[in-house]
Design a protein around this nucleic acid. Sequence first.
DNA 1: GCGCGCACGC
DNA 2: GACGTACGTGCGCGCA
Length: 956
Amino acid sequence: MENQSNDKKVFLLDALALIFRAYYALIRNPRITSKGKNTNAQFGFINTLLDLINNQKPTHMAVCFDTQAPTERHTEFTDYKANRQEAPEDLLAAIPDIKKLIRGFNIPVLEVDGYEADDVIGTLSKKGAAAGYEVFMVTPDKDYGQLVDGNIKIYKPGYQGGDAEILGAKEVCEKWNIKEVHQVIDILGLMGDAVDNIPGIAGVGEKTAAKLLAEYGTLENVLENADKIKGALGEKVRNGKNSAILSKKLATIITNVPIEFHEEDFRLKEWNRDLLKEVFIELEFKTVAKRILGEELSIVPGAVPQGVQTDLFGNAVEGKSKAEPKTPKAEVAEETGDTDRAEDGDIVHAGKNIQNTAHQYRTIQEEAAIKNLVKELLEEKEICFDTETTGIDANDVELVGMSFSFKPGEAYYIPCPADQEATRAILKQFEPVFNRKDVLWIGQNLKYDMLVLKWYGYELFGETFDTMLAHYVIEPDGKRSMDMLSARFLGYEPVHIEELIGKKGKNQLNMRDVAIDKISDYAAEDADITLQLKQVLSPLIKSKEVEKVFHEVENPLAKVLMEMEYEGVKVDQDFLHEYSKELEREAAKAEDSVYEQAGVKFNLASPKQLGEVLFEKLKLDPKARKTKTGQYATGEDVLMKLAHENKIVEDILAFRELTKLKSTYVDSLPELINRKTGRVHTSYAQAVAVTGRLSSNNPNLQNIPIRTERGREIRKAFVPRDSNRVLISADYSQIELRIVAGISGDPAMCDAFKKGIDIHTATAAKVYGVEESAVTKEQRYKAKSVNFGIIYGQGAFGLADNLGISRTEAKEIIDNYKKQFAGIDTYMESTKAFARENGYVQTLMGRKRWLRDINSSNFTVRGFAERNAINSPIQGTAADMIKLAMIKVYHEFRKHKFESRMILQVHDELVFDAVKEEVETIKPIILDCMRSALPLPNEVPVEAEIGSGINWLEAH
DNA sequence: GCGCGCACGC
DNA sequence: GACGTACGTGCGCGCA
């Protein structure tokens, strides 16, 4: 389309279709109850219009308004389903506003009674092209049909002009490269439910329909010969006759519309600014009005009003505009006057460009030179330290070199030879430096470097400033590789590691294989950059007011985590081996049973194939849900709904569970056992989860099964390292709810915790207005779900889904909950208000999460931000608390010189590999550390439970 | 190599 | 049918 000159284009907008789409987007979401002015109908229309004007700069345009709105055809459509008959009323309500907008923008209107925009373009295909114009039609999906040589040419979804026939859906899909049948409907300018009716017969899928059409030629022939069609199919065809005819009528484009093409009728004129202003005020489009009218934006490219960069359905439109879109971040900064953002921007420019700055990187190998360096390092107050190693698993690498930097632009690299004795000798010379207590160690992900050192027997005693963690507390979302941080905060792109060792893959080199002078430059630069990053990030830590969580939580924790990773946990290989065989047998049994019942062999592990078998071959559910990629959804929730009627589903679920357990846990764990220690050493990611939680990988020990009988067995494989030890597990009880109670100060909930009443029972008693002793199991279960939902900021919809109850009932429960626990409702509202005001929310330790979308005018985006606003302080405070507890436990253990070790953290649980004689001594210490780590407001008590046993399952 | 669907934890 | 459902990691499939 690029080669089309603008003055040869005419754009047609089907206003009614646009409103229709917006309207359905509205009513499909039950949470949208607003019937106010500022609805999606108007908004969607203006978005599409502005998008078009800004991107395509048409000189000629017309709105094709289906004037008999709803026209005969639209009326028929809404009759398809009785419950949608309310549609036209609201639709009509929006029309006057749309008309005002059209007048404001001074767009020519084509009013042709009783015809669709489709018909108009169909007709113009015969008449308009002669005038030398290309006619484009903007459909609700913003796909274009182009008029070429009197025919409408289809780009992406489009429609066939002229005397359009209804094609078999399959044929249409093939012809226009469309995956989903419902898109055909969009193409034809119709809406949703007619999906089932292409070619108009309910219950006849596209494949069957195509077959029928191929056999009889036309739809009319199919219907005429309906009696000859055998069985259920014939029945369906006969029953669906009327809707088939209607479908065809709906989709047929009329090409004899009484309209003539006159160039001047389509030419765009000046906007009527006064009228626009009036309409915008009326519709409360304040932001749009300000941007369109307050500034000279008009239709100049590069001046796309950012406030309307969402599509018809309220989704953010990315990269559609030729103008460089501002990031949402920038937008927030602008709207809230967030000076910190501006500060960030300044830093990029204020930062030194290392490339242009004289630097001195030196490789230190001679003993005398090392002595000199050590002497110097003993004097410095702050030292940046970095290691180069042979791999990324710190528990299984050799040191290749170390770099130090203490002055920007200067750095030293000390190569360490493959001969480990020689490397040890070099390290020995640095021992006094490592042992310094009066030094601040600076590094990027120091946990890694400390772990490498630990394997060589050294420890860093000084305090630490980890640039990765600094960035984590400054900006918990977003990426933070060193290259990225350098580019962003120093304005410099460092040498990328792939330039040394090649792209990742089987041919990637080992650091050991790279020439020393090459590594030296790279490694020294890393230390230099990290040092400079510290200078930049340090003031940001202060200005963002996150010193507390940074200095008191994250930095000290890194060392604790390092030690836990170093210790590892022993797994019982024999047990897993046996269990693997058992799982294998059972999985095979379930698999065979599925094939037998399905009557066909396929790959059961493939959701795609399974979906086809279940819903096409076995036809278990004629209304099977599909995923966004067009596959049948076969998730657990979907299958469970079919479970009571079909034994095959049971077997499928069993197969899923068994193979999941086998592949993810039983068979993988032994492969991650470290050769040196015979244990698995997980790695904790300290700067990944936006809420402040840790995450665990290689292996992930935070998702070991516990829910099901068979899954739970796996916990038996986690054992103490020798027979003189046991495992201890200590976990917080209802910690997140206690935090909710504490920070909201809700008297009812605080009281329940203070009295030590089971919180879900207490909740049920309140919500259902009964005595605690009279609460039924079901009431407690429902109350538990509500409590759970509160923590996640979930609404009635999610609750209903979770409990399998109606949304009405869910809403009732929630309303009652809010009444009984008014403090919680207030907390949720005030948290959202705080977020709107400040652009962030925070935990008790001052850990912040910035919510740039909290003031978004898009309800979906804003809703997401609002849920985060509620959830993050809760989840984050729980994360702060256990992190503080871990630091406390670690220091207590060191102080008492216990040999027992903390080895795992699973969000609200700590696991210890404990020496038997110490068990009774350390249990109260652990509990005390956990309870006192972070006292909650309003005297809400913090409780923890503890147990021990010969494996993790028993300890729990 | 990557996106997706699915499933495990808290 | 499409919209949404806290925070994570990892597996196998299917496609490029």
